[in-house]
Simulated scan of single mutants.
Amino acid sequence: MPYVKLSAPGDVQMPLVGLGTWKATNEEIDKALTTALDAGYRQIDTAFNYNNEEAIGSVLKKWISSGKGKRENVFITTKLPVFGNRAGDVEKYLNWSLKNLQTDYVDLYLIHMPFSLIPDDTGLSPKTNEDGSFVLDLEANNVETWKAMEKSLKDGKIRALGVSNFNAMQVKKLYENSEIKPSVLQVELHAYLQQKDLRATCKELNIAITAYAPLGSPHAKSHFIEKYNYNKTDFPDILGHPVVKELAEKYNKTTGQILLRHLVQQNVIIIPKSSNPERIKQNIDVFNFELSPEDLERLNALDRGEDGRIFDFRFFKGITKHPEYPFNFKEE
């Protein structure tokens, strides 16, 4: 497994392939994570509001207790929830995640969203208005939140810090106002949304890129409809694109492996999510072939820019009115 050396203090190396767990239920986690660890995965990506950290912690404890590996052999990423983006809440939500994951530290801690929402009375979900829109937190400050995360890193609870879903301007602002610089930016990234300008900015700042939804998140549409009653039009089918299918036949690989190889060959960290054991094994089996320069360019040419974006977060009703909303959509 190739690793990416992060700019974090000390020698922090992040596996190039990890298991994504967004939308994975507790029942799915047991089978999927066990399969992944046995297949050689050594990176797990989760988040407080995925509601599966506890299940992940249980599987890891069982795996470590069985003598198959040690805690230091596994790179764990989790994230500060969008309703916990205040400096005073960092320690609370981080400690909650550490307890659920049954570990004393996480390898990477991310601010999940650049915008902030007010939590409900439970502290476990965002608060909503009577019309179903989310209550925006307009006082949270990402720089102040970051400083609280820096303290947790110095206390040994975090090894590296990063952000998710930030745009280039937001990343630069944090970089310029931080003592411990961001090591990782996690964003939606796939053949239809290649984020070339953002990646160039991160390269200048020595920030590694993690791609979520590297296969185009085929099941996201149903999730948007079921959870948020939000139906995004023109949902992409990257796996079914003729060029991707042609290359899969040429290299005797699956269409998913072609799309994943396209990214790892450019040193982009990937966290494909699957609960299918066979697919989990396929998603890590991308290091025994290499796409030719010509085929890389054919895949590069599939980029649709912003038209290829799936996760615009407008399923958070009213979110485009937040000053830290990262994309250039007009107010609703």
Rank of each mutant, 00 (worst) to 15 (best):
S178C: 13
I271F: 09
Q265G: 08
S65I: 10
F75R: 00
P182A: 08
S178V: 14
D120K: 07
L239M: 15
G240I: 03
S152F: 03
L291T: 05
W22N: 04
K79Q: 14
H241D: 15
I319A: 01
G305Q: 09
N267K: 15
A32G: 10
F235N: 13
K321S: 14
D237C: 09
H262V: 07
I158N: 01
P2R: 10
P9Y: 03
D197R: 15
L174S: 01
E176P: 05
R86I: 03
L37Y: 02
K173S: 12
E188C: 07
I271C: 03
T21F: 06
D38S: 11
A160M: 11
L198H: 06
Y251V: 06
T201S: 13
N141P: 08
L6C: 07
F166P: 00
F75G: 01
N26L: 02
E130D: 13
I238N: 10
G216W: 01
K227H: 12
S125F: 11
W22S: 09
H223P: 02
N129G: 05
L185M: 05
G10H: 12
S152K: 14
L110V: 09
S292I: 02
L185G: 00
E27C: 10
P119D: 02
L98V: 01
W96I: 11
R199I: 12
F134C: 06
L153Y: 13
A8N: 02
K31G: 04
D285Y: 04
K281P: 00
E249P: 07
T255Q: 02
G308K: 08
N142E: 07
F235A: 05
D303P: 05
E150L: 10
I111S: 14
L247G: 01
F115E: 01
